[in-house]
């Protein structure tokens, strides 16, 4: 199993090249989190909520509003799902799991407990990342590749928040 894993330095270097090629060919830097904001606008609109009451969905000529989809980043995020699916079948590592191994060892096999914490974690993470203006792709890969000050601050805080929380979660 272990020999099947690609060396992280080589896979990382190829990712760096992929980013450079993407910027060169289509002018697009990697990012993922705004897709969740735009999708939430589409969902809210589809269930009859007036999204124009929220400044975020109308600011910058509706850049984050319900009419901003489909766009490059949505297809990028969907592509990640497809690419991962193909690669996991190819390497025989596709596995249906409701609970990660490390989580199971610490917190047991209760799927509802995992679901609740994962939902809360996702909600806090996305609120935070939209406030910060980007995720580990947007601020991390794209921001730091451009040496942006915002990327250094954001990535440092991602790590500090994550480190402290992980220590608390997994303390003996």
């Amino acid at each position: 199993m272990k020999s099947k894993r690609w060396n992280p330095y080589i896979a990382g270097a190829l990712t760096g090249l992929l980013l450079v090629l993407s910027v060169f060919i289509s002018g697009k830097f990697f990012g993922a989190s705004t897709t969740f904001s735009r999708s939430s606008a589409v969902i809210e609109k589809s269930i009859g909520i007036d999204v124009n009451q929220f400044e975020y969905f109308t600011t910058k000529k509706g850049k984050y509003g319900p009419n901003s989809l489909p766009n490059w980043q949505l297809m990028f995020v969907l592509g990640i799902i497809i690419g991962s699916f193909i690669a996991s079948l190819w390497s025989g590592t596709f596995k249906i799991m409701m609970i990660p191994d490390m989580w199971r060892q610490r917190f047991g096999g209760n799927t509802l407990k995992r679901a609740i914490i994962a939902f809360i974690g996702g909600a806090i993470a996305l609120f935070g990342v939209r406030l910060a203006g980007g995720c580990p792709s947007g601020h991390g890969l794209s921001g730091l590749s451009q040496l942006a000050v915002s990327g250094f601050i954001a990535l440092g805080c991602f790590f500090i928040g994550g480190l402290i929380t992980a220590i608390i979660l997994y303390r003996d």
């Binding site: 909600a123 935070g128 992980a166």
Partner: peptide
């Protein structure tokens, strides 16, 4: 503030 919040959520979700 956003970065620290993301970190907390990231560690909860994984």
């Amino acid at each position: 503030v956003g970065g620290l919040m993301f970190g907390i959520g990231w560690a909860l979700l994984g």
